[in-house]
């Protein structure tokens, strides 16, 4: 299990939060995902054997949200 926090560009509409969370939770290998609206960050708990941090990043960007950084 690995943890990663992605910094997104400013998230403005709370429906974006639902969208990103929904997408991540439906993705195989991700056990937990939380979007923090005020800090525009996404906390993800995932299984490295199933999905890589890079793939998650691409998935978030695929929804149209730029990822500015990760840690």
């Amino acid at each position: 299990m690995a943890n990663k926090t992605y910094q997104l560009e400013t998230v403005t509409c709370p429906s974006c939060v639902a969208k990103i969370e929904g997408m991540l939770k439906k993705t195989a290998g991700i056990s937990e995902a939380e979007v923090m609206f005020n800090t525009s960050r996404v906390k993800v708990n995932f299984d490295e054997n199933v999905i890589s941090a890079e793939e998650i990043r691409n998935k978030i960007e695929g929804l149209g949200f730029k990822v500015l950084g990760e840690k």
Binding site: C13, S15, C16, A18, K19, G22, M23, K26, G62, L63, G64, F65
Partner: peptide, 19 residues
């Protein structure tokens, strides 16, 4: 374009947002 991209991306996961 950015709105459409976000909308289509979300619909793939069956999420209907404002986009």
């Amino acid at each position: 374009t950015p709105i459409f991209v976000k909308a289509i991306g979300a619909i793939r996961y069956r999420i209907v947002g404002i986009d």
